[in-house]
């Protein structure tokens, strides 16, 4: 089951997308993905959800109040870097596209009005591509482990680091103390 997060300030768009993603099969090559869709009409609420749950793919509108699609995806990437990122927008000028590709590294840009088949294909391809990357990483880790380049501990630390960035690092204070949350201290 692939978890997908959709953000658009237009409720009708969200509903039509949910209908589409619920019914149509999402395939890529010989793979078929079952989709679980979470829709948000506000980027802020969507980010909040992204902090608490894992998603395989983010699909965002570009023009929204408070923050635009590129800003949202940049923030989402910081939280979940492995998720695929797509933009679905009716209009974006060249600057927006450049930012989307260069700053966020989006997988696809889909224009509105969209073709249902194209959209499903794009989602399928993005999910397949992500799966492939994950698989590659896992296999590479296995190889490194067998070659002795890495240890299960290191891999576990890497995994933990992905879940909770910075957890494997220890910050020593000048007096030899251990600073657990430098960010929190700095905020103070």
């Amino acid at each position: 089951m692939s978890r997908i997060l959709i953000v658009d300030d237009e409720e009708s768009i969200l509903k039509s997308l949910k209908r589409l993603l619920r019914a149509a099969p999402c395939t890529c090559g010989n793979k078929t993905f079952a989709l679980e869709v979470q829709a948000f009409n506000s980027p802020v609420a969507a980010l909040e959800a992204a902090k608490n749950e894992d998603f395989d793919l983010f699909l965002s509108d570009y023009r929204m109040p408070v923050m635009d699609g590129v800003e949202f995806l940049t923030a989402a990437k910081a939280i979940q870097p492995d998720a695929a990122r797509l933009i679905l927008s009716g209009y974006a000028d060249l600057n927006a596209l450049v930012r989307a590709v260069n700053e966020v590294g989006i997988d696809r840009f889909i224009g509105k009005p969209w073709n249902d088949y194209d959209l499903m294909s794009a989602i399928g391809q993005a999910l397949a591509h992500r799966e492939l990357l994950m698989e590659n990483r896992q296999l590479a880790n296995l190889v490194r482990q067998e070659m002795g380049d890495t240890t299960p501990e290191a891999l576990e630390a890497e995994r933990l680091e992905r879940i909770e960035p910075g957890i494997t690092e220890v910050n020593w204070g000048p007096d030899g103390s251990v600073v657990l949350d430098p960010e929190f201290l700095a905020r103070e």
Partner: peptide
């Protein structure tokens, strides 16, 4: 035109998609 395009493309997008769903 940019604003209008966006505003027209949104409803056209979801109506079009809804018609697809309706078809199924």
């Amino acid at each position: 035109a940019a604003g209008v395009a966006h505003e027209i493309n949104n409803p056209v997008g979801f109506v079009n998609s809804n018609l697809g769903s309706l078809k199924s």
